[in-house]
Design a binder for these strands. Sequence first.
DNA 1: CTGTTAGCGCTTTCAT
DNA 2: ATGAAAGCGCTAACAG
Lengths: 342, 342
Amino acid sequence: MQQKKEVTIYDIAEKLKLSATTVSRGLKDHPAISKKTKKRINDTAAEMGYRFNTFASNLRSKRTNTIGVIIPKMNSSFMSAVLAGMEKVANEASYNLIISQSLESAEKEAVNVKTMFNNRVDGLMVSVAYDTVGVSQFDILIEKGIPLLFFDRALDHPQCTSIVIDNHKSGYLATQHLIEQGCKNIIHITGNLARNVYADRQKGYESALREANLKVKPENTFITALDEQAGIDSARNILKMKSLPDGVFVDNDNCAVNCMASLINEGVKIPEDIAFIGFNNDPISRVIRPTLSTINYPGFEMGEIAAHKLISHLNGQQSINSTNSIILRSELIARDSSKKIK
Amino acid sequence: MQQKKEVTIYDIAEKLKLSATTVSRGLKDHPAISKKTKKRINDTAAEMGYRFNTFASNLRSKRTNTIGVIIPKMNSSFMSAVLAGMEKVANEASYNLIISQSLESAEKEAVNVKTMFNNRVDGLMVSVAYDTVGVSQFDILIEKGIPLLFFDRALDHPQCTSIVIDNHKSGYLATQHLIEQGCKNIIHITGNLARNVYADRQKGYESALREANLKVKPENTFITALDEQAGIDSARNILKMKSLPDGVFVDNDNCAVNCMASLINEGVKIPEDIAFIGFNNDPISRVIRPTLSTINYPGFEMGEIAAHKLISHLNGQQSINSTNSIILRSELIARDSSKKIK
DNA sequence: CTGTTAGCGCTTTCAT
DNA sequence: ATGAAAGCGCTAACAG
């Protein structure tokens, strides 16, 4: 299987009696090259089977036109939507996206940051892992002036912009909704409170309880991994409680449906005995019975805005820093799992 | 925001009174460099804030240590598992993975192939899009001797290895299972029959029917996109049929649960009126009620095997071609949605 | 509008 | 176990 020799711009230049520079410019659609020459160059390139060498280009120009993205896990329709939004904006600005998963591990995340750094990404967008601590793993980027932006699961950093949803309000709305349905003893199944998303939702949950003169009991907040197993385990823990709750707010639909299914298996009636509300508006929330009430928010838009902010910065149009952060709106979707009142 | 000057191996070499060659080797853990020198080199590199320049390396060595992966869509636990398997093997062999989605579009797939090609991937693994036609879009790779491997949704190509599951047997098992439960009028909701996975399952479905002396009716095969909407639409179409089916075999769990939910909404009893079996063993199949019978198969293993085959080829240990293709085993998981017999 | 020159940072011979 | 020299293919800077 002999590799054919690679065609370079020099080969094209020679064939056309031009300089390599002109060929390079012609291929790049540079304004200073005549239409006619451009056409000759492009035609010859195609004919000779030329392929652009990104490495030589990147080496020389010290730019990669590549943006890195690190997400915790590619397992929700929300993440798909965010990435789709990012990809759209990046493509339009002719940037490439490199996506990698931390799989919820701070350790793997740190490795990914290094890999992105070594791959010379022009900028990086991160939604941090479940157990990430501190921000020092990102220092290498900041030091080299590589713009860093957080989305959804954000960290506080003066030099970074964050794009998030209003988690406080979301938590408040979800809890208030359960209270309106008559719930007086509401569980909040959440994640690591070091993460802004969970901490803010917890605060919103507490605000709503206090506003309704309901007690905030520490034992009513379950800190979990918010995955399927956490849903099943939480159901077991709920059934063990002295007084059964009458409402459950789960920070993730997938976890919520598993919890619901386990409870129903044990004879619990939903929403009559326990009302449920999830988070994410995942497609599963519409398929499960009873259909799951949830919080919806604009993932695609979040991706678009994040990518747009970063690219604006790269083009020198605006700066990445904490004062440019954005909070997107979310909304309550009430379905059968929470409608105690007929 | 001034960029600090990049540290190169020459800077390290100078500081240590060594040659760049030695530094390069030391960083790469080359056997011909003494332990002591290696330690000095690595320490100094860290201290000086050196970062490896992939582009210079790739440019010079003409290898990228990168494997490309193109998948239709990152929307199932099956795909996650496959990618995790690939990543594990790739990482162990110190290869990077670039993953991109065709979003079920042949057009985008062709673009992705070109991008991968221009990014000089050492090899490519592809699960083709829903509507891909022909194999010519992959010619550029074959011509340059870049190994190409298909997994799950495969194309026939003498120079490519395929890693697939036994779709014929899976279709047969699923259908036979419904027949054993007493079904006599079974619908098969499938996808584009130009795709091996769906064509083979359809053949298995037909084999099982014939074996049981049941008629194979063309109108009982629904060609759909196998997504959520297809499930909902199929439910509507089923309800319009002159004689309602008593069994439905869907080639995708996600589509199946949406179809089931829609039918249940219309008062259909599952499995009593219509028994159901899906495909993929997606987590959703365990949460939905009734729990969905399905076909399980080893996604993680598929990823591992695919990556392993490709890397073996890159190391010159075995060849990529159609004679090395592998068919993995799948298994039936019977749950409540198909158990008519008590 | 086109060309000349130089060099990005690394690895690969081939020597020693 | 270490080094010298050359060059991968491109583009920035300057020249005309």
